[in-house]
């Protein structure tokens, strides 16, 4: 069993650091919220961030090797499922299922 006071201090510090990143733009930029540049970023940043978060999920993997084929297969199945069924739940669970099957059966090994 680790030290409980240390854990509580870590939780407090993490809560503060996380909240700070979320509250900063509201504190600093409240008065300039309607600036055209901010509205421009608000329109184009979300799609950019979603793509970056997909790539970020594979941090630590070798993107240009055979080892990445299962991930590409999984992403492709998510894309096909979502374009045909347009049901987020089916796409996520179906894609994850495909990936797990590919990994556990060693299809690309």
């Amino acid at each position: 069993m680790e030290s409980v006071p240390y854990l509580i201090a870590v939780i407090a510090v993490m809560t503060a650091a996380t909240f700070l990143t979320r509250v900063l733009p509201f504190v600093l930029l409240y008065k300039v919220a309607d600036h055209p540049v901010l509205r421009y970023l608000g329109r184009y940043l979300p799609p950019v961030l979603m793509v970056l978060l997909v790539i970020y999920s594979f941090k630590g993997e070798d993107l240009i090797s055979r080892d990445f084929l299962p991930e590409l297969a999984g992403l492709f199945s998510v894309l096909v499922l979502h374009l045909t069924m347009r049901n987020a739940l089916v796409s996520i669970l179906g894609g994850t299922g495909c990936y797990m099957a590919v990994v556990q059966m060693g299809i690309f090994n």
Binding site: G74, V78, M100
Partner: peptide
């Protein structure tokens, strides 16, 4: 094994 793929799948959707 492989359940962690829900994260990229979610962001992909």
């Amino acid at each position: 094994a492989g359940i962690e793929f829900v994260l990229p799948a979610l962001f992909m959707v």
